[in-house]
Each structure stands twice: as C-alpha cells, then as structure tokens.
C-alpha cells in the first residue's frame, strides 16, 4: 500500500483537521497539556466532528505523556449544537408549529 504510514508519529489523530500524533506530542511538550489547550494550538478537534472521536484519544495521549489522571482530562461539558445542524432548522421548527 502506497498510503502506508512509515513513521508511527505521522498517524492522524484528528482526521477532520489532519493533525498528526507528532504535532500533538509537540504541543504537549511545550506545556499545552489539556484537550482544550491542544485544540487551540493544533486545531485538533476543531473540524466537522468537533472532537467527538479524537478528544478521548488526545486525552489518553496527554495522560500517557504527562502522568495526569485521564478522568481529569476527559471533557465533561457539551454545548449546543451537539452535532452539525443545518441553518434552515429554525425555519422548519416554526413551520411545524
């Protein structure tokens, strides 16, 4: 396979924004050691899925690298919209009233 990742550090952790393990580890080593910090530096979690899949993986990478407790790193707050919504959603809501 020509697409095979040669260096495991090149593996994509955030697929929406195409952020590699290397970039995430670099951010952590610079002191950006929460999921939110890593997002701000690398864009991991800013894409279409809004970190729904990668944020747990990133929390685990941070925990392994810094010795922090994984429970503290997992995000526990969600805000609207919890998934992508079409702009016309509000018009549809009204036409059903």
């Amino acid at each position: 396979m020509s697409d095979e990742v040669k260096d495991p550090k090149d593996v994509l952790i955030c697929r929406c924004e195409e952020v590699t393990l290397r970039e995430i580890e670099q951010a952590i080593d610079e002191g950006f050691d929460t999921v939110n910090d890593v997002k701000r530096i690398t864009r991991a979690g800013m894409g279409l899925c809004q970190g729904r899949s990668c944020s747990k993986v990133i929390a685990r990478i941070i925990a392994q690298r810094t010795g922090k407790n994984i429970e503290e790193l997992l995000q526990n707050s969600y805000r609207y919209p919890v998934r992508p919504e079409k702009f016309k959603i509000f018009d549809e809501e009204e036409s059903h009233e």
Binding site: G47, L48, Q50, R79, Y80, P81, P84, E85, K86, F87, K88, D91
Partner: peptide, 9 residues
C-alpha cells in the same frame, strides 16, 4: 446558507 451546516457556537 440554508443547506449549510453550522458546527459550533
């Protein structure tokens, strides 16, 4: 824009 998604507020 009506058929575009917004992903975050």
């Amino acid at each position: 824009l009506k058929d575009i998604h917004f992903i975050r507020a």
